[in-house]
Design a protein around this nucleic acid. Sequence first.
DNA 1: ATTTAACCTGAAGTCAGGTACAGGTTAAAA
DNA 2: TTTTAACCTGTACCTGACTTCAGGTTAAAT
Lengths: 145, 145
Amino acid sequence: MYTIGQISSMFHIPVSTLRYYDKEGLFPDMQRRSGIRAFSEKEVDALHMIECLKKTGMEIRDIKEFMHWCQQGPATYEKRRDMLLQQKEAVEAEIRRMNQVLDMVTYKCWYYEQAIADGNEERLKSMTPDKMPEKIRQAYENGHK
Amino acid sequence: MYTIGQISSMFHIPVSTLRYYDKEGLFPDMQRRSGIRAFSEKEVDALHMIECLKKTGMEIRDIKEFMHWCQQGPATYEKRRDMLLQQKEAVEAEIRRMNQVLDMVTYKCWYYEQAIADGNEERLKSMTPDKMPEKIRQAYENGHK
DNA sequence: ATTTAACCTGAAGTCAGGTACAGGTTAAAA
DNA sequence: TTTTAACCTGTACCTGACTTCAGGTTAAAT
C-alpha cells in the first residue's frame, strides 16, 4: 500500500493531478484508511495503463470508461481490446498526418535556405515542382496533397 | 480582395476564428475598407502558412512572431528558417514518440487477444518477454523503454 | 427607400486538463 | 506531548484556442 505522496514521486505526477484523476473516477473503488487514499498494486497497474492511454491522446472520460471495464473482469476483455484497437488506429493515423506535416516543413526549410542564398524569393515564387531537387519535390508533393 | 466570409468558405475556417486570428496579430497591417477587413493575396499566403505552422503544433503567439517577421522582408529569412528548423525537430521528435506509443498499444492489443483466448490473465501476468512472439516482444521492449 | 445579409466590436462563455488556495484532519517525528 | 509534515475537501483559478452573444454599422438586393 502506498500513500498519494509515494505514488506522486514514483510516477512523477503531482499529488493534485492524482487527486484530480481520482475525482474523475480513474481509480474505481480505491480503498481509504480513515479518509486517506491507499494505493495498492491495482492502482499502480491502473496508473501505468492511464499513462499509456493518455499518451495515445485518449480523453479522461474515455480512460474512465476503460478503467471501469477493468473492474468488471474477463467479461469486458472484448470491449477493452476494441477500444485499444481503435486507439491504435488513431495513433497510426496521427503518425501518417505528422509525416505529411514533416514533409511540409521540410519543404519550407529548403525554401528559406534558397531564399537566404538568393537574397529574395523571386526565383522561388515562380518555381514549379519539376525544377526542385528530387527529395524536396517529393516532400512538397506529399506535404501539399 | 476578399471579404472575411469568402476567406471563411475558401479555407473552411469559421469567421469568428479568422477575426480571432486577426485580433491575435496573425495578419499584420491587413487593410480595411470603411472598417471592413480586406483580405488580399498576402493574407491568403499568410493563412496557408498559419495552417502549416498550426499543424506542426506551434502556438498562436509564436505564429504571430513568424508572421511579423514575414512583414519585414529578406532581413528575417534566417530567423524564419531557424524557427522552421526548430519546428521540424519538434515534429520529428513527436513522430518518434508516437511510434513508441504505437508499440505500446500494439502490445496491449495482443495482450487482450491472448486474454480473450485464455479467458483470464493468469498466463499473461507471469509472462516474460522471451516467451512472447518476436514481433510482440519487440513492440513490448520498444514501448516500455 | 427599405429590408436584409454580412460585416463590426468588446466582453463573456466554453472546454480540457489540470493547478492553487483556504481551512481542516491525521499521523509520524522530536 | 507537541509540532510538523502529509493528508483531506471544496472551490476557484489558469491556459490555449476558440465560440457566442449583444448591440451596432455597412452594403447589397428588392
